[in-house]
C-alpha cells in the first residue's frame, strides 16, 4: 500500500489569514497533505499562528507580526523576512527564515528551533524559555533580555545590552558584542560547550557553515538571583 502525499497552495491575495489558519488548525493526524504553500503574504499578521501538526508550511514572501506564534511541531519556512514576534512562545517544531527577522524574534519561546538566515533586530530571544535560536547574521540591542533557558547562537555581532538580567539561557556569539547587560558575563568556552553548540547547529542543519571554535560564550553571573543592596544600581 502506498500513501500519497500532496501539497496545497493558499494565496493570501484571495484567501484571508483566518481561513488559512482555520485550515491549518483543522489538520488531523494522518492527513496526506504534508506541505502547505502560502503565497502573497505581503506583511500580514499571525500567518500560521497556533499550528499543532506535523506539517511543513512554506510562505513565499514577507510576513508581519507573530508569524508561527505558539507553533507546535510544524516546520514553517519563510521565503522572505519576518515581522515582530516571529515564533513568539513557540513550543516545538522549526521556523526557518530566509531573510531578516524583526524585533522580539522567538520571544518567550519554550522549545523547538528558529533559524534566521539574515539579521534579527532588537530583543531577539527576549524571555526565551528553552527555544534554540540561530541567527546567521547579527542581532540588535537588548537581545536575550531576561532569557530564562535555551540557546541563542549568533554568527555575526550582537548589539547593546546583550543578555540583560539573564537567567539560565546560553548565549554564543561569533562576532563582536557591543555591550553586555546587567548580570551577563563572558564565560569560558571549553570543548564541552563547543560540542554542545555543534550539536545545536547540526540539528538545525547549520553545522559546518562556521567554526564553533570562533564563538564566545555568555551567560548569567547570577549576582541578581537574590537581592543584595550592593547590586541596587543594577535593578
Amino acid at each position: 500500500m502506498t500513501t500519497q502525499f500532496s501539497a496545497k497552495a493558499v494565496d493570501l491575495a484571495a484567501t484571508s489569514v483566518r481561513e488559512l489558519n482555520a485550515a491549518l488548525h483543522a489538520i488531523r493526524e494522518g492527513s496526506n497533505v504534508a506541505r502547505w504553500q502560502v503565497l502573497n503574504p505581503r506583511g500580514v499578521h499571525a500567518v500560521a499562528a497556533g499550528v499543532d501538526a506535523d506539517v511543513t508550511i512554506e510562505i513565499d514572501g514577507d510576513v508581519g507580526y507573530y508569524c508561527a506564534g505558539m507553533n507546535k511541531r510544524a516546520t514553517v519556512i519563510v521565503n522572505g523576512s519576518a515581522g515582530l514576534g516571529l515564533g513568539e512562545n513557540m513550543m516545538s517544531g522549526l521556523i526557518y527564515v530566509k531573510g531578516d527577522a524583526s524585533q522580539a524574534a522567538g520571544a518567550t519561546a519554550h522549545g523547538g528551533a528558529i533559524v534566521i538566515e539574515g539579521n534579527a533586530s532588537g530583543r531577539c530571544g527576549i524571555s526565551m524559555k528553552g527555544v534554540d535560536i540561530i541567527v546567521k547574521g547579527s542581532i540588535g540591542p537588548m537581545s536575550a533580555f531576561m532569557a530564562q533557558a535555551g540557546t541563542l547562537a549568533v554568527f555575526g555581532d550582537a548589539g547593546d545590552a546583550l543578555g540583560d538580567s539573564i537567567y539560565e539561557a546560553k548565549l554564543y556569539v561569533r562576532g563582536a558584542v557591543k555591550s553586555l547587560g546587567a548580570d551577563c558575563v563572558e564565560k569560558p568556552m571549553d570543548d564541552m560547550h563547543r560540542a554542545e553548540l555543534y550539536a545545536k547547529l547540526e540539528r538545525a542543519g547549520a553545522a559546518g557553515e562556521v567554526d564553533v571554535g570562533e564563538f564566545r560564550r555568555y551567560g548569567s553571573a547570577r549576582a541578581l538571583y537574590h537581592f543584595h543592596v550592593d547590586n541596587a544600581g543594577a535593578y
Partner: peptide
C-alpha cells in the same frame, strides 16, 4: 531565586500593537 517580572509585554507596546496581539490570540484560539 528571586523572580523579577517585567512591567511591559516582551513583544508589543501600546494599543496599536495590542490590536495585532489580540488578533493573534484570536487566531490561535
Amino acid at each position: 531565586i528571586d523572580q523579577r517580572s517585567s512591567c511591559r509585554h516582551p513583544d508589543w507596546t501600546g494599543p496599536d500593537d495590542l490590536e495585532i496581539k489580540i488578533e493573534e490570540l484570536r487566531e490561535i484560539t
